[in-house]
Amino acid sequence: MGAVIGYVGADVPVELITAAGARPVRLAGRPDADRTLGDRYLGRGLDPAARSLLSRLLAGEFGRLDGLVVSRDCEASLRVFYALRELRRVEPAVALPPLHLVDVLHLPHRTTTRYVLAKVRQLRATLESWTGSLITDAALAEAITAHDRLRSLFAELATLRRQGRIGGTRALSIVAETTALPVTAAIELLESVLAEDHAPVPGLRVFLTGSGHDGPEVYEALEEAGLLIVGEDHDWGDLLWQRRVGAPTELALAERYQHNGPSAPRASIRARAAHTAAAARECGAQALISYVREHDDAPPWDYPAQREATGLPAVLLERQPYGGLTPEARTAIKELS
């Protein structure tokens, strides 16, 4: 059985993990999981999704991991890394895998590309030491080609969503399933889904922005209320697949992650608004919802510009519980639909 490498955040170049002969597994929280351990080490003022993830990791819910790569995609991910690093230092009895932080910057400069390329090479060396396998250029090229193939299949799935032939809840669940599979198995899963017959799905066509969603609970609640989520701009959804690597090289890999986005924690308000407006138009959205979890501070700053740029009926659902909706949010959704 090959090595299993966990990762946190969408800025981790998973192609390198695959090229090392390991299975990448994206770690996530779970709304109904006990958060006691995460609250103890991170405090209760941080995004509950991150606190849940840390709790599950410390409780051993992800099984054996041969390494853990954390990206600096947001403040919460960085705090998780620092907590784990300190725990490894002061609590050697806690069974934790070796850690590595990937700091991908998203500025559109050549100097930024050089910086990100250096971080890609550092991760490559770390994975080689963890797995005992040399990552050859041929293995990297093969991995890049496979992950780009997977992204192309996600684009086909997105087309079905825009046609109203698959719901957002199922699409998000498929994404989550693929992030725990070897890329070849993920490709097979997507191909089987795309080969199915897909009947039209009713509902008001909604574009979802705001916090990311690592599970289907909020999507289920929104679609049970008569909405159809046809697109989103978070990194468990459309931002996961929209940008390909394109060329089988380290440099192209670095550029892919440098220019991926724009995400709420790392992009300007103007860039977010322009991206959301273009994506909502492409999806044929009839309304805009910004869902924001408690202690996720970035998305509310984006909302006024997103609402203006899209020109759609819109609602901001702030300070929402992880994986749920407040009664006030449910009332606002009913008024929107």
Rank of each mutant, 00 (worst) to 15 (best):
M1I: 14
V4M: 08
G6W: 09
G6I: 07
V8I: 15
D11S: 14
T18I: 12
A19G: 01
A20M: 05
L27H: 07
D32A: 12
T36A: 15
G43W: 01
G45D: 12
G45F: 08
D47T: 13
A50Q: 03
A50S: 10
R51V: 08
R56V: 04
L57K: 06
L58A: 12
F62S: 11
G63M: 06
G63T: 02
L68Y: 10
L68Q: 12
V69K: 03
D73L: 14
L87F: 11
L87C: 07
R89S: 13
A93N: 02
V94E: 04
V94N: 10
A95L: 10
L96R: 07
P98Q: 00
P98E: 10
H109K: 07
A118G: 15
L123S: 10
D137S: 14
H147V: 01
R151M: 02
A155S: 14
L157N: 09
R161C: 05
Q163P: 13
R165Q: 08
G168F: 02
T169L: 04
L194I: 02
A195S: 04
G203M: 12
F207Q: 12
S211Y: 05
G215Y: 07
Y219I: 06
E224W: 05
G226T: 04
G226E: 13
V230R: 12
V230P: 01
L240M: 03
V245R: 05
L251T: 15
L251N: 12
A254R: 02
E255T: 11
R256K: 15
N260T: 13
I269T: 06
A274M: 01
A280N: 03
A285T: 13
A285R: 03
Q286R: 03
L288I: 12
D297P: 06
R307W: 06
T310F: 14
G311I: 10
V315T: 15
L317V: 10
Q320E: 11
T326W: 03
E328W: 00
A332W: 02
